[in-house]
Structures are given as C-alpha cells and as structure tokens.
C-alpha cells in the first residue's frame, strides 16, 4: 500500500530529488549542537498554537459585551475548554521563551554570518511576529489587565514623530481602546499575523534547508555529523515530547486564569504590570522619558536586525568580540530590567 502510494506520486512528480536530499541531509555534531533543537521546538509550539487557536476561535466573540463571557464559557462550561485555553496560554509563554533562546543562541554562535544574513533577518522578524501575536491575543479576554496593557501598547507609537499618531489611530480604530480595537486585534491575531507568520516561517525553514545548520567558529574544525533522517528527526521528536510534557505539567498545575472583566471608565489598578516578556520594556518606560526609552529600544532592534551586515569580522570567519559583548549587554539589560520590574512593582 505504502509503495503504491509512493509510486503514484513518484510517477507524477519525480520524487527522486527529494529522496536524494533526505538521504544526504546531515546535521553537524559538536559541543554546541544542543542549541539546534530550539528551532524545531519553536516550530512544534507554533503548530500547537495554531491548533488550539483554531479551537478557541470556534467559541470566541470579539465584542466587548461578550468577549469576556465567551472566554469564561470556554473555561467553565465547554468540555476540556480550560485545557485547550491553558495550552494556548502556556504555549504562548513557552513559545516566546523558546524563540528568544533560539535567537540568542544563534546570535552567540554567530550563525548570522554569510551566507545566512537573510535567514537571520527573517528570524528576528518572526520573533517580532511572535510578540505581536502575544500582544494582539492579550486583549481578547477583555480583562482589566489586558485592557490597560493594550492601552499602553497602542499609545506607544504615538510618541513617534509624523506617523506616530496615525499608527496609534489605526490600531485603536477610534479615539480610545474600545470595541473597534478589539475587532482589529482579533483580525490581526487570527488572520493577518498568521498569514505573515506562515510566509516568514516557510522562508526561514526553506533557507535553513538550503544552507544547513551553521557551525560555530570555535567548532569549525569538527567534521562530525549525523543524518537528519531519521537520527536528528528522532532526537527532535524526543525534544518535542519533552517540551509537551513540561507544557502539560504547567497546564495542569497552573491552569490559565481569567481576570475580572474591564470597566473601561475605571482607573488602572495599582500593581498592574505586563507579562514577563514585556517587563523589560515596561521598566524602561517607567525609568526613562518615553522618547528616549522607545528611541533607544527601536535603535537597538534595528542594529539587531542588520547585525550580519555590521559584524564584518564574523563574515570573514574571524572572532568578533565586540558583537559578542554587545549581545551579552543586551541580554544582561533585558534580564536585569525584568528582575527590577518584579522587585519594584
């Protein structure tokens, strides 16, 4: 049966090139190979988010009058609703963490060097998309915390000269965060961002197949490798299973909660703060004037995006200590600001 099926497609599409590629594809083995698994794990979590997201969309109502109630209905009445939403909630947190680890590990291994510049840029854009997913999804339960987090988020671009107010207005869909904002965030979260994500992730994965895994400069003399099919894929699958086990443990021990429904007229409650992955931005905004805070973060993101073109030494396969220190400084800043935000609010 299997042979007949393969034969059917082979006859029509000539799968010999695909078979040759699968047979020849290998993954380098060295002391830093462990970090390779985070790319596959991110892909696995994205798949999980798509599946649970589609399921949640069957019950969700993007209207301020029903949004909170519809999520509550899923959590309390729909069979396994709490499970599906909790997987989506924890999956988002895990995904952000895994994509950050994947990005910083590839940064410190200088995997962005020639010829993988475009792959790096796509990767940074995908991280931006993941954060955009979390931001747009955050408003959907229409809770007090999600409402004010969105207010801060949509008002942040307004400090930019010329286009700032216009961008905020497009995101808000009115004079303030309200029904129009909820519809827009839902559309972004379920239609526009997924389309962009599919496009960017496909290109990113395609390029990773074309170039293969990057070997760090310190390991360039190592020639060991394992076959992708089935060896690496099996290990990848084991990592996915491990990730899923940890995720399900978190889901069952700490199911996603649902805060109180927002009353848009009432003030923001004391002690309000965003999710852990936005805490460093939150703390920066608290400690510095918004123009300096947003200006510096924007500049750092731009430098991060084009780092393959700035780090010329890495492109020539030479050590580039300056960029290693720059990456370390960014990481230390993010972690210390996150800790500060936890300690001072």
């Amino acid at each position: 049966m299997k042979q007949r099926l393969v034969g059917f497609f082979d006859e029509r599409m000539d799968l010999s090139a695909l078979r040759r590629w699968a047979k020849e594809k290998s993954v380098p083995q060295h002391k830093h190979s462990f970090w390779y698994y985070f790319g596959g794990l991110a892909l696995f979590l994205i798949t999980l988010q798509i599946i649970t997201g589609i399921l949640l969309a069957l019950y969700y109502s993007p209207n301020p009058a029903y949004a909170h109630e519809s999520v509550k209905y899923v959590m309390e009445t729909v069979k396994y609703g709490w499970l599906i939403r909790s997987i989506h909630f924890w999956g988002a947190n895990f995904l952000v963490a895994v994509v950050f680890i994947h990005m910083f590990s590839t940064y410190f291994m200088k995997a962005y060097r020639k010829p993988r510049e475009v792959m790096w840029i796509l990767g940074v854009l995908i991280l931006g998309l993941v954060l955009a997913f979390t931001f747009t999804g955050y408003l959907l339960p229409w809770t007090t915390l999600s409402y004010f987090a969105t207010k801060v988020g949509v008002n942040t671009p307004s400090i930019m000269p010329i286009l700032g107010r216009f961008i905020t207005r497009i995101m808000e869909g009115g004079r303030d965060v309200g029904a129009a904002t909820l519809t827009r965030m839902f559309t972004l979260h379920t239609v526009i961002l997924p389309l962009l994500a599919v496009l960017l992730i496909t290109l990113h994965v395609l390029l990773s197949q074309v170039f293969g895994s990057s070997v760090p400069l310190s390991q360039a003399n190592k020639r060991e490798a394992i076959k992708f099919f089935p060896n690496f894929l099996m290990r990848d699958a084991a990592v996915w299973a491990g990730g899923l086990a940890i995720l399900l443990a978190m889901v069952t021990m700490f199911p996603a909660g649902l805060g109180p429904k927002v009353n848009p007229v009432m003030p923001a409650p004391v002690g309000i703060k965003p999710e852990w992955y936005f805490l460093f931005v939150f703390e920066t905004l608290r400690r510095f004037p918004e123009t300096i805070a947003i200006g510096t973060i924007t500049l750092a993101v731009l430098v991060w995006l084009i780092v393959p073109f700035l780090d010329r030494r890495a492109s020539r396969n030479q050590k580039s200590t300056f960029f290693t220190l720059f990456g370390a400084a960014v990481l230390v800043y993010m972690i210390s600001m996150t800790i500060l935000a936890y300690l001072t609010t």
Binding site: V265, P267, V270
Partner: peptide, 23 residues
C-alpha cells in the same frame, strides 16, 4: 487619560492627586 501612554489615572483622596498605576 494619562498623558504618558494612556492608562486611566487613579484619584488618591489621601493626598488630592492622581496616580497612574501603569508607569
């Protein structure tokens, strides 16, 4: 509406001022 980034400010009757919980 806080003029910083738009959160709703809270009236503090203990000191007759407004406090923004966001930043």
């Amino acid at each position: 509406k806080c003029t910083h980034l738009g959160c709703t400010v809270q009236f503090r009757s203990d000191g007759d001022y407004f406090h923004c919980a966001c930043h």
